[in-house]
Simulated scan of single mutants.
Amino acid sequence: MRQIFFDTETTGLLAEGGDRIIEIGCVEMINRQLTGNNLHLYINPERASHEDALRVHGLTEAFLADKPKFAEIVDELLEFLTGAELVIHNAPFDIGFVNAELKRLRKPPITDVVGSVRDTLLMAREMFPGKANSLDALCRRLEVDNSGRTLHGALLDAELLADVYINMTRGQDALLIDDAGGDSDSAEFKLAAVDLRSFELPVLRADEAELAAHTKVLGELDKSSGGKRVWQDGI
């Protein structure tokens, strides 16, 4: 599966009010492995940022003046995103801005180009109801280092979101076997035979607290998977 962790910075909060995209960050992950094939774009919005937005991203008119306009990068962006699952924190905001830019160019909405859209804010609200679920809050809760995030930046935020997503989905990439580091044809391995019948292995049984913790984790996994668990099938 090809996923793109996607984030934008904008001149303000209202796409329908004429605010524009000024930065796009895309981080590619294939089969839960970051590829390093990322896309980072600064865009001349042809207007000034609101003061509140400028304090958030720090991208001035002077900095953006010589950057390409959205019409000049749209083909590169769409080619990069085609067919992928977009993973976005608070997806309606970013999708709304991208669609507004595409509409100006008389192009179809982004959902006609990508495979699907996943909103990690909705995922977080289901996993952590009643708690703060901003990207910063999730970084703290899931022990993702965001110490370098003094200002918002689309590429940095997309990279942080990728780390947050892996932790939210239980880091299942760690279960993949990486055999790239060894070559069974380049060395000879000799294993001594061991008669396991000479060992008496102890049985360590879980106590009540461990059983309760195990049940809680299974419940969380069941909830985050939308009830698509398979471990109790046939029980």
Rank of each mutant, 00 (worst) to 15 (best):
A91P: 02
R104D: 12
D94H: 10
P109Y: 03
S184R: 10
L211A: 11
A132M: 09
M127A: 15
L121N: 02
N146Y: 09
D195E: 11
L142F: 06
E208V: 08
S186H: 08
V87L: 03
V114G: 01
M127N: 01
T120G: 00
A192R: 13
N146H: 13
K103A: 15
V87Y: 08
D185P: 00
H152F: 15
V114D: 01
L155C: 02
Q172Y: 06
D183K: 05
N167S: 11
P109K: 08
G181S: 10
D185H: 03
D183V: 04
D207M: 06
G148Y: 12
G171P: 00
V113H: 12
R118D: 00
A100N: 07
D119P: 00
L161G: 05
E208Q: 13
F80R: 06
A124Y: 09
D183G: 08
A206V: 02
I177L: 15
D195T: 11
V87E: 08
L191K: 14
F199K: 08
A154R: 07
N133L: 01
N90K: 06
I177R: 12
E188A: 12
S134M: 07
T150L: 01
E208S: 07
E143C: 03
A209M: 11
A212M: 10
D163R: 05
R141K: 13
A158M: 07
A162F: 07
L102P: 07
F189V: 15
K103H: 13
D179A: 13
E126Y: 09
L201Q: 07
L204F: 14
E159H: 05
A124R: 02
P129C: 01
A158D: 10
K107H: 15
V87R: 04
T111M: 04
L102C: 07
N167K: 15
S198Q: 13
E188G: 04
E79D: 15
V117G: 08
D173E: 15
K103I: 00
D136A: 05
F93Q: 04
T150I: 08
I166P: 00
A158P: 02
K190Y: 04
A100S: 11
L160T: 04
R205D: 15
S184P: 06
L122V: 12
K131I: 08
N99K: 08
N90I: 11
L191C: 05
S116V: 01
L81S: 01
L81F: 06
L102A: 05
L201H: 00
H89D: 03
V144S: 00
L211D: 15
N133F: 04
E85M: 15
